[in-house]
Structures are given as structure tokens and as C-alpha cells.
Amino acid sequence: MVVVDDLHIVYKVYGAGGDRGSAATVLLRALGRRTRGNIREVHAIRGISFIAYRGDAIGIIGRNGSGKSTLLRAIAGLLPPEDGNVYTTGGASLLGVNAALLDDLTGERNVVLGCLAMGMSKQEAKVRYQSVVDFSGVGDFINLPMKTYSAGMGSRLRFAIAAAKHHEVLLIDEALATGDAEFRVRSHNRITELRQAAGTVFLVAHNLEEVELTCNRVVWMDRGKIVMQGDDVISIVDKYIDASGGIPVERDPATRRRLHRAVGGES
């Protein structure tokens, strides 16, 4: 369960002018002629409130820079709120595209390390190992350093590691975008399982069909605020597509499902 209470997040960007490191700037600063200048504040989240209950899978949609990833990082406790607060049960685990674990090490070691870092015992990690490798589908690459992996393989393995444990709150930031169709089906099923185990899942995705298939609620963000949120995922997605000038999705009038199928299988 996650409660977001009138959350504001402000990034402080130092040296936005780009001359932070130059000797002259430092000298001026040291002489007191200039304060540690060029601090720009970016108000990334501007007052968001909602409650996510156990068993919710919440899709977060919005344009680039609308604050989706920032929101996830705030829920994970990685960003301090400027105002308001985020409350969670237990730890929230964030799974992002650039969560590379340890690049120099083999996939095998990353799996074991990841399991141990999440608090599993040695025994538990050993038991889970094979299922994580099977789930990721990286095959023989498991014995190679992770830096040799393609982007898709890397994110598959990361998701597999994170999904090995039951999370009270799992935050997925575009992590599934690079997986192939087969992997998406598996991860979709896993997310459903995690939900059923009374966890809360957040999913940031630009693939709106994935959101429709996976999520029971959707939050549409723009410029750090919620434009809309609710249980009627399909109509919010359609409005979002409409507002961003996209081509309307053709739907079956009876089931409201998409007529074409890009993603295979549903559970």
C-alpha cells in the first residue's frame, strides 16, 4: 500500500550555466564575489495525492518529462520530498532501465548478489537461482559479464532478479520496454502474480497497450501534476492519446479491447 500526500519534489541543479568548474568561477566564489551561483530549481512534482491499495497495478502515463520517473523514485524513497510525503508499507523496490547492477560481473553472480541484497538467505538464493535464470531467458549468456548483454537481455535479467522476491511495492520504470514479445507475456503474468500476492505494482510505460493489459488503474501525469486518474484504464488511455494528438485506437465496441494485437497473450 502506498499513500502519496500532496507530494512536491524539487530538483536542485547546480551550475546550470555550465561554468561551474572553470577556474575563474571558483576564484570568484572563493573571493566571495559570487555565491555558489546558477542553482536552478526544477519543480518536477507539484502536489500529487493518491492512495494505492494492496493488489493494485497502477500504470503511470504521460509525456517525457512529466514527472513519472521522479514520482517512482520518490515512492522508492530515493528522492526527498520538498513538501508533503510518501508513505509505504515496507520497502519499495524500483526497477529502472539504467539499473545495471554490476556490469563487470557475470549474470550468474549478479543473480546471486541481487537475491542476497534483497535480503534472501544463501540457501534461498540458491533455490531461486534457476527459476530466475529461466525466467530471464538469457540462456548461456548467464556465464558472461553483464556488459556483454544487449539492452533487452540486461533488462530481462534485472526484472527477473527483482521479481524473484515478493515485494510489497514494486516500481517498474520502462524496464520491460526492451523485452521481446515472449518475455513481455511472462513478465505480464509475473506482475499479475505479484498483484495477487497482495503487492502493489507501479508501471511506467510508453507502451499504452501494455498498461491496458497489465494495470487496473492508471494515473495520467503532465508537468508534475495528475491530469486524471481512475479505474477506467481504457477511457483514460484514449483521452491521453487524443490529447497528445495520437491516432485513436480502434476498439471492439463490445469488449473495448484493441482490434489489433501487438502483444501476444493475456492472462
Binding site: 500529487i48 508537468r223 501534476k225 495528475i226 491530469v227 486524471m228 477506467d232 483521452k239 487524443d242 490529447a243
Partner: peptide, 22 residues
Amino acid sequence: VPSPTLLSAGGDPGAGRIAAAA
């Protein structure tokens, strides 16, 4: 169009298009 739950509105004028949409 019957809109689902509305939480907070776009605060700055630039978001007008989105706000109008909603």
C-alpha cells in the same frame, strides 16, 4: 465524455491543452 476521477488540475497556462482535454 464522462471523465474518471479528477485529482488536480494543470496549474500553469502551458498545460492548457491537456487541461482542456480533461
